[in-house]
Nucleic acid binder design. Structure first.
Lengths: 223, 223
DNA sequence: AACTGGATAAGTGGATACACAGATACGCTC
DNA sequence: GAGCGTATCTGTGTATCCACTTATCCAGTT
């Protein structure tokens, strides 16, 4: 649900399968940053030729998940510490914008649904490390989608995918942060207040404050 | 200079040529939105096979410049009126962020260089419609680059390319807006003031105020 | 006369084959 | 013994070929 917000722009059956396959592997942290992705390997794994895999690489490169160096193959793109911060800075203004634009579409039902999302997020944090990450993204994207800005939502979702492996690692280490629920309740509170400008600021702060937490657990592999 | 900030991520000689060729054509407004891009046509035009052209299409699709529908070819992506507004909204917060982060790196030399950029922009507006657009982008990107945030700059540059055809059309119609210089002087003024928060707001306003102007001249072709 | 169905043609997506570039290892020379 | 050059091998990038989907046109039927 969360990640399906990212549609692989122009993609056909075989290529789409390759794309989804690799993206899932990447998001699950199966590869480490700097690992080489060998087209033939992946191609035989899914049962197709190198061709669609290459096209999938292009798609992933555009999203910043892999790096393609001419004649030197495709490697998993890791984020440096600076890049993690940068990604959170970008996320903060984009999601800030989204929540500001979402405000007119906030009503009681929406707030209740968001509360339920938080419940699911909390329950997911018990079952598995990666379940929480998925629910957490779903919560954020749910708010963003209320802005009714497809391109904005797509960009935000794309950023979520990029930082997902780092979120996952962080969560594995700290073993369910107790503050997570409270942090996100604040977001619902400000949505309830109806103040769009304030909501933007709260969302921004919420996001940039997360970055330093992650930073300590950064780099699943060097660059 | 301005657009070279967008590097075609992982691309080799032949494919890179195809990519640059098509992107230039697109930015110059050679095609209208909805036009089909026929791989063979372009391939023979540059003197290569369809293959690198296909990969170039993928790259362009990832940037949102073209649309690839499975088994139905590649068409030039136009922006609806809503999408133009949305793009400017996204630009406003991203460039707002950029200018805020750029503030610590502003000094006298930088301000002088920006003034020179404005001069060039004004001169370019006399020589040709498209020259002004290029200079205008260069001015904005120059400021953004001072933020020292590569990913942020790349995203902003990508948005500039998307709206370039619309800017060009608008400029052709109004024949050099007299207010353009003054509008951008304000940006330099606020940079000179040293107030990062204020600069962010001014930049945001500057950008979102541009959108309605463009809207009247929107859609070089329907969607 | 208009609409629907089928057939044909055009064009896209995928696979295989080939050529070239880069990396590594081994040998030769200093 | 060490460093550089060369040769081989691995693997990417491009082209050609084939199969399949889609679109268009014509004919037949209502």
């Amino acid at each position: 649900m969360a990640a399906d917000a990212i549609e692989p722009l122009g993609i056909t059956t075989a290529e789409e399968e390759a794309y989804r396959h690799i993206q899932r592997a990447l998001r699950m942290g199966r590869y480490r940053a700097g690992d080489r992705l060998i087209p033939e390997e992946i191609a035989t794994e899914i049962g197709m030729s190198r061709m669609p895999v290459r096209e999938a690489f292009r798609q992933l490169a555009a999203e910043g998940l892999v790096l393609i160096r001419p004649n030197r193959g495709c490697i998993v793109a890791g984020l440096t510490l600076d890049e993690i911060y940068e990604t959170f800075e970008i996320r903060s203004v984009l999601e800030g914008l989204a929540v500001r634009l979402a405000m007119p579409h906030i009503d009681v039902e929406v707030l209740e649904e968001l509360e339920r999302q938080l419940d699911r997020m909390e329950r997911a944090s018990q079952t598995g490390s990666s379940d929480w990450v998925v629910r957490h993204q779903a919560f954020h994207l749910q708010i963003c989608q209320l802005s009714n800005r497809p391109k904005l939502v797509r960009q935000i979702a794309s950023l979520h995918v990029v930082i997902e492996p780092y979120l996952r690692i962080w969560f594995d280490y700290v073993d369910k942060p107790a503050s997570a629920r409270a942090e996100h309740e604040i977001l619902i509170d400000v949505l309830r207040s109806g103040d769009a400008g304030k909501a933007e600021i709260v969302m921004r702060d919420h996001i940039v404050e997360t970055a330093p937490l992650l930073a300590n657990f950064a780099s699943p592999g060097r660059r």
